[in-house]
Design a protein around this nucleic acid. Structure first.
Lengths: 148, 148
DNA sequence: CTTAACTAATTGATGACTCAATCATTGATG
DNA sequence: CATCAATGATTGAGTCATCAATTAGTTAAG
């Protein structure tokens, strides 16, 4: 892939690389908190208690993955889970006090990192990059739909 | 992350998402060949026989991962490995005839997919996207260096 | 010559993700 | 009310990645 010359190939290759390096950077910078777990906690922080199912859709990983992450986060005391009384199948997930403290700290840390990653990029450029990425994402989703 | 509003946050989130969806699309479109394995075969196709070590650096995954991928690809008859006579530690890897046939087909398939993903993006836009991604990647690498 | 440092490849352990199968609960239909 | 489909969560198996430790071969210094 690295060998190919067309810009489109290089873009695809670059997206993969950036994601890989970004994840690693994130992990080391955030005391070992993975991007996925940050995403889980961040979602809970913004939109209060959530059903596991809803959280799974927002974070966009498998059911199984969510279950296992939440199990971990629960033993770390960052989140609490509670069965719904009306419907005994669903489990509501929310941050604990500790979780709320921690995520506040991590959010700050992430913002700091984010600032450093975009120092030399003007806001219009950022917006442009975002638009282009959105176009690409849209195309990918379209392809996936026509495939199924 | 999806909740946050600053363009930079959205960019980072989007890169993750695009990579995830792209990998899945690639897998389904290429008869289950993963991006990493495509990359391995593609490298071998372009730059002939390679030491495992060199291949590992080009594809940019762990030593262990390369060893295991090559083991698989060998049992599938796509590549061949041969010890170097001068230095018995190194193993040279090359495509077999079958491997060469297959990668030609997959390259075509990938080009086709790539074309579809960028239909509505002009070449200058593609180039611009690539430049912006490169800037981002450069910044990430810089951060990782200062961290270690 | 032998010991020590270096390099290439492999193996084992661990963690994250997916898919498929399962369990428990709910709700609707005959 | 009994059954059966639908839904939420869990579990098990398989893949792919990493790190750390190990094996095997090479090279250089005492």
């Amino acid at each position: 892939m690295r060998e190919s010359c067309s810009p489109s190939d290089q873009i695809l290759y670059n997206v993969i690389t950036v994601q890989k390096e970004l994840s690693q950077l994130f992990d080391t910078e955030m005391d070992g908190l993975s991007l996925t777990r940050y995403d889980i906690l961040s979602n809970l922080n913004h939109v209060g208690p959530l059903r596991q199912r809803e959280l799974q859709q927002r974070v966009d990983v498998d059911h199984a993955a969510i279950t296992r992450h939440l199990k971990q986060l629960e033993t770390q005391g960052l989140i609490a889970r509670e069965r719904c009384l009306q419907d005994n199948r669903v489990i509501y997930v929310d941050l604990t006090e500790l979780g709320r403290d921690k995520i506040a700290h991590w959010t700050e840390q992430k913002k700091c990192l984010s600032d450093r990653l975009f120092v030399n990029m003007k806001v219009e450029e950022q917006q442009h990059l975002l638009d282009l990425l959105n176009t690409l994402q849209h195309n990918i989703q379209h392809e996936r739909k026509t495939l199924i």
